[in-house]
Amino acid sequence: MGRPLGVVTLLALAVGLGAAFGWAPRDAVQGNVQRIMYLHVPAILTAYAAIGVAFVASLAYLRGRDPRWDRLAHASVEVGVLFTAITLVSGSLWGRPTWGTWWTWDARITTTALLFIIYLGYLLLRSVVEDPERAATYAAVVAIVGALDIPIIHFSVEWWRTLHQPATLLRPQAPTMAAPMVATLLLNLAATLCLYAFLVRRRMRLAVLEAEARARRWR
């Protein structure tokens, strides 16, 4: 399973990259720099998905104390933090040529940076609590509470005045974007979701090996 998923991921990333540069038209207003969107938006949507999975897995862990749920939550958060970082960096690179700034404290950027910090805190918490079961319990609560930030990020552009524009894709009406651009975006989203699944599987396998090594040391 690991290898076929890896191959599919690699192919999807290559096709997505090809579509972003070779197939999608340039934007009338922003020109070619708008192509950063095909990394920026899939990265944050994948981060949402990762944190969403961690939220559900943490609830499941707190109910049944099955370590497999905890491993899923932990792996998912790690990959989610990675994709949040990609979002922040690509957004900064996109903001400079279009808005004229690398960074500004608008509500969407601030709440996304908050998401990054909350889940960095999650990873930190796991590493400072020595007892694995206690670490898992504490971390699960942080993962559940922290996920509340995702709807705040999404609605930030409606609740507050921001430099970010309102939603293009995730809105009740039809997307305000040309069809080939939407297709390229969805293709790249599929690719980043594959990458997420691939990384989470590898990370969970690593967690099993870590647990086994720890058990062997205790014996």
């Binding site: 922003q30 040309a178 651009m181």
Partner: peptide
């Protein structure tokens, strides 16, 4: 000065 842009994306007419 920071520029705002709209949520609309479309190719230029001559693209």
């Amino acid at each position: 000065i920071m520029a705002k842009h709209s949520e609309e994306y479309h190719p230029p007419a001559d693209a």
